[in-house]
Computed example of a mutant assay.
Amino acid sequence: MPKLAAFPKAFMQELCKEGTMKVSEWIELAVKLDISGLEWYAGFLEMEDESNWPKFRKEVESHGKTIPMLCCSPDFTHPEAAFREKEIEKQKRWIQMTHILGGSYCRVLSGQRRPELSIDEGVSLAASCIEACLPLAAEKGITLILENHYKDDFWEYPEFAQQMDVFCALVNKIDHPNFGVNYDPSNTFLAGEDPLELLYRVSDRVVTMHASDRYLISGTIEDLKNEEGGSVGYAKRLSHGEIGKGLNDYDAIFTELKRVGFDGWISIEDGVDGMEQLARSVSFLRKKIKKYWPDFQ
């Protein structure tokens, strides 16, 4: 049975760069939502102090919620082996962080799409780094989740595996019970591709999901494909919006996830226009999930 969580999409600069918002303030806002969990981000400034990890878990759980998944951004496609080894060590620390927070899912990425990198080389580098982290993940009972990502907020280049064919090649290269996909339909638009086509290709590997929505500021999807298809820089024709009012077809998405027996966490990346918007997105998703999973509470 799917469960709902929320991610502080609107407050990343405040929590991760400026320090003008405390994690406890985000917790107090999020626990008022009709959700079961809070997705965490490894880059919260206060997460640098490891003594805070169990404190935040206790704080969240005191409200009857959990921290099911950790969002982090390893860069596994760097040409230097020493750099990649440091990224593997970072990922292992994030696996430990997930475990201490009480979570079961820890995000991995491929890395940055550096201009000199070939597709085969990038897939090979990313796969070998992810595989180096899997023994610890298995030991801690954590599933590593590869997201079809666009670009980390603090990266120079977009995601190496942004394009569907590259993402699927990487997913297919890793066969391990502690590895799966975190599906984000909106990110597919940023690659100038169809989110349903991607879902149909990887649905049997999807274990978690980011729920978000995008809408066109101007023009058409064809304009987006012609102008933005995977280019450096955020797609200027697209903007984050309230879930259910954008381009994503959640009936088609949930029909496919239901078909393959999906029962993981759905974490909401929304609220860029305020907590009321996030609450409306929660309400929309609860109604949709109830339609496809009638026992959903």
Rank of each mutant, 00 (worst) to 15 (best):
L199M: 06
S51F: 12
K55T: 12
W155A: 13
E80T: 04
L190S: 12
L4P: 04
T208K: 07
L117D: 09
D270F: 01
E121K: 15
E227Q: 12
E39A: 08
E61P: 01
F296R: 10
Y183G: 09
L196M: 15
R201D: 07
P185Q: 06
P74G: 04
L134C: 03
R205L: 08
S186M: 10
I130F: 07
S212F: 00
F56T: 00
E25H: 11
Y105I: 02
V282P: 01
D175A: 10
K17A: 15
K225N: 11
Y234C: 03
V60H: 00
I217H: 05
E50T: 14
D270T: 03
P195I: 12
H99F: 13
V206C: 08
P79C: 08
K65N: 06
R57H: 00
L45V: 13
Q277R: 08
S186G: 14
E222K: 14
N52V: 10
A6Y: 08
V23S: 06
I27W: 00
R205S: 07
I130K: 04
F154D: 15
D273A: 12
N187L: 04
L136V: 07
A5C: 13
N172I: 00
G180F: 12
H63W: 12
L38F: 04
L33N: 02
G192C: 02
L196T: 08
M1K: 07
V60N: 03
T220P: 10
I130R: 04
L144N: 03
E242G: 09
A191K: 03
T20E: 10
W26V: 07
K92S: 08
L170N: 03
I119P: 04
D153T: 13
K58R: 14
G141C: 06
E147I: 10
Y234W: 15
G103P: 05
E269P: 02
K236F: 11
P195S: 11
W265M: 04
K225C: 15
K32I: 00
P294A: 06
T98R: 01
I289P: 02
A137T: 01
F284D: 00
K258W: 11
G241P: 05
V108Q: 00
V181G: 06
Y150F: 15
K245P: 07
L278W: 01
Q297F: 15
C129N: 06
F76M: 12
S118R: 05
D270V: 05
T188L: 04
F44P: 02
K236A: 13
N187C: 11
D184M: 08
N226K: 10
D165P: 06
A127R: 04
A279S: 11
L247D: 14
L134M: 06
Y41W: 15
E193S: 09
K58G: 09
P54M: 10
G229L: 05
Y215S: 14
F76G: 03
E50Y: 10
L216Y: 06
I142H: 03
A279I: 01
A126Q: 06
F284C: 00
E276Y: 07
T143N: 01
E50R: 15
L109C: 11
V166N: 07
L216H: 04
D34Y: 01
H210Y: 13
I174S: 07
L216V: 08
A138V: 05
R205V: 02
H149N: 12
F262Q: 06
Q112C: 01
I100P: 06
E147M: 08
Q112I: 01
L146E: 02
P8M: 09
F76T: 05
A127M: 05
E256M: 11
L224R: 02
I221Q: 12
Q297D: 14
